[in-house]
Amino acid sequence: MKPLKEFTIPFVGLKIGKHQFNFDIKETFFEHFEYEDFNSVKVKADVILEKKSTLLELNFKISGFVNINCDLTNEPYDQIIENDFNLVVNFGDEYNDENIDILILPHGTYEISIQQYIYELIVLAVPIKRVHPGVEDGTLDSDILEKLEELSPGLKEKNEQNEDDIDPRWNTLKKLLTDK
C-alpha cells in the first residue's frame, strides 16, 4: 500500500525535544484502506513526537466520532471514540515491527509513516457490538426493533405458565417440604 504523504513525518531535520502534529481524519482516509464500515468520520488525531538522541517516542491520541450502523436495527448513529497509543522508534540494521510497542527502522531512515497506526487506533476504538444509544435507553422507534420483540422467545410466556402445567411428581416432592 502506498503511504499517504500527509501522514509521513520527516524527523531528520527536527531538533531534539517534543514536536506536535495534528491530523483531521475524514472518510477519504478510510477509502485508501478500502474500509467501508463507517458512513462518515470526524476524528482528530494528535501525535506528539519526542525526538531523543538515539530514539523517537510517539504518543498518539485520537478523539471524535464515526457514524456507523447499529448491529440490531441497522440504524445509523454517531459513535464517540477515544483511544491512545505509545510507540518507541529505535534504529537498527533492518526494519522490524514484530513488537507492538517498538518499531525498529534501518539506520539512515529520515521519515516515518504513521497512517497504519492511526487507522488501527480508530478501528479498534469502535466497540465490537455496535448498539444504537436509543436501543439501550428505549427512545429509538424502529420497525426492526418492534419485529425483534415480536419474534423473540418471550419471557412473558414463561411467567404465564400455570402451576397446572408443572409435572405432578414435583407436587409430591413439595408436600415432603411442608409435611415436616
Rank of each mutant, 00 (worst) to 15 (best):
S142F: 02
F65M: 05
E94T: 14
V12G: 07
K175G: 02
E31K: 03
H32Y: 03
P3H: 12
P3C: 09
V43I: 08
D137K: 01
P127G: 00
N69Q: 07
Y35H: 04
D141T: 12
W170I: 15
K52L: 11
I128A: 01
V131H: 05
G134N: 07
K52S: 10
S152K: 15
K180E: 09
E150W: 07
Y117W: 11
F11C: 04
K61T: 14
D93H: 12
I128T: 05
K2R: 09
R169Q: 08
S142P: 00
T109K: 07
N74G: 03
L124A: 10
K147D: 11
C70M: 07
D24Y: 02
Q161L: 08
L140A: 05
D37Q: 08
E75K: 08
K15E: 15
L55Q: 13
K147W: 02
E34V: 06
G64I: 10
T172Y: 03
S53Y: 07
Q115Y: 00
F85Y: 15
G138M: 05
I100H: 12
S113T: 12
I104S: 01
K156D: 15
D84A: 06
E31H: 05
K42D: 15
Y117M: 09
D84G: 02
N59L: 14
K61N: 12
I9K: 03
K44T: 13
N22L: 12
K180F: 06
S113F: 00
N67E: 15
L176Q: 01
F38D: 03
I81Q: 04
I62A: 06
D93C: 02
K42E: 15
E82V: 15
T109A: 13
I144V: 15
L87W: 08
K180R: 07
E98V: 04
A125S: 14
G92Q: 05
N39W: 00
E160H: 00
L176A: 04
E27S: 06
E82R: 04
N69H: 06
F85S: 10
D93E: 15
I48S: 06
L58M: 05
N96D: 15
L105I: 10
D93V: 13
L177P: 03
I112A: 06
F65K: 08
D101Y: 14
N59E: 15
I100P: 12
K156G: 08
V131W: 14
H32V: 11
N86F: 08
K156W: 13
Y117N: 13
Y95W: 13
I112H: 03
V126N: 04
V41G: 02
R169M: 04
E111C: 09
P127K: 00
L49P: 01
N162S: 13
E34M: 06
I166W: 01
N162E: 11
Q79F: 05
K147R: 05
L177S: 12
L72K: 06
Q115W: 00
K156F: 11
P10W: 10
L56M: 09
I112Y: 10
L151S: 07
Y35G: 03
V123E: 01
A125D: 01
K18N: 14
S63G: 11
L58N: 00
